[in-house]
Design a protein around this nucleic acid. Structure first.
Lengths: 209, 209
DNA sequence: TAGATTGTTAATCGATTAACAATC
DNA sequence: TAGATTGTTAATCGATTAACAATC
């Protein structure tokens, strides 16, 4: 199943969409689906769907199609959702708090155990059962807890410093960065940037008359 | 300058990144830059940078390169940042509140004037000078105010209904959708989906051993 | 069995990179 | 002028789509 070396990023980024649509189909009690039908509702060609899925294995059956529940499970496994992930949030401002409250992540297996901030007003607070620690304690925390992903919700200026400090402990696998800047990490630490402003600017572009 | 018909989405999505990096260069008092230098710091090839920019015009000068301030201004104009945009936020929960507080958007010209929610506990509140109205008043509000973009921060279940209702007034140009579902709108209304969970799932995929 | 639909190879399309003449 | 670097055309690369034999 681990053919992931050669799978294109474009295909990988489609996987969560498959996962969402397959979940919807399950909720609507659809048992089986063909690549043609799935393509129609997702806006893909049947060909692309078969190509995408066959990057990871033959999950269908000729003359029948795909079993929805089974395929959903397989895509989940491909995405790594057969395990859960420990998460910390760095930056307990509005966005950090919003993410900590986002039950969707928890339901999918991303458990936030701690938040960190430099602001003394926030340190010590508890937000929906999650304690806010002083960011200066981050190294100690990471050394004594298995954390997979850090959500970085700081401002632009602090993001790289934060990334460097948490990368140094080498106990973390990935950074999910919401600061409006590109951060760099040592080889082996995955960075996923969510540049909200970039997304919004493409909206501005597209509504120009 | 309006060659935008044929410009690829891939190129358009790189524009905000140019805009960010050029701003950084201005802040660091860099006056001119070549496509080679800019490519090195942005992780693009010089060739791609020249191709991207020449979708919109020849902003450089042979033998010299690009004037940073001028190019920054041009990219801003291409993105449509020479005007400002009126914004409403639908869904005044954690994420909606976080977005309303995000000064970065305002600085770039996106002004939030009102929030809407169905929750009576939130309706009537004021969050950083922005009033929360009852969502049932949305049609009236849109008819009496020029709103360009609606940020949809509802749950998955309500997102399509919300999108349909605000699309019906036809006074809005775009929807920036944060609900974890794909929404459809009438032709002519731009939709930009920010699927946070999709982004997070690609992280899970990429940290699989 | 016949019909349907997959898995996979081949063809096409589009985006990125390379090359180079134009020119500051 | 000579050197540098653009704007743009041509070549390459990769991703998407089409086609079809395999097979349930």
């Amino acid at each position: 199943m681990e053919k992931k070396d050669k799978v294109s990023m474009a295909a990988i980024r489609r996987l969560p969409k498959y996962y969402r649509y397959l979940k919807d189909l399950i909720d609507r009690d659809v048992e089986k689906i063909s690549s043609k039908e799935l393509g129609d509702i997702m806006g893909f060609t049947a060909s692309q769907i078969r190509q995408d899925l066959n990057n990871f294995g033959g999950f269908g059956q000729q003359g029948y199609g795909y079993n929805v529940k089974e395929l959903y499970g397989e895509v989940g496994k491909i995405l790594g959702l057969d395990k859960s992930y420990e998460v910390v949030i760095i930056g307990a401002g509005n966005l950090g708090q919003a993410l900590s409250n986002y039950t969707n992540f928890e339901k999918t297996g991303f458990n936030c155990k701690a938040m960190f901030d430099v602001n003394p007003r926030l340190v010590g607070m508890t937000i929906r059962d999650i304690k806010v620690y002083d960011f200066d304690d981050i190294e100690g925390y990471l050394e004594t807890h298995d954390v997979d992903i850090a959500f970085v919700c700081t401002n632009k200026e602090s993001a790289q410093d934060v990334a460097s400090r948490i990368s140094n402990t080498c106990k973390i696998s990935a950074i999910w960065n919401f600061a409006p800047t590109d951060i760099v990490t040592p080889e082996g630490i995955v960075v996923e940037n969510v540049h909200l402003i970039d997304s919004l600017l493409t909206v501005a572009y597209r509504i120009k008359d």
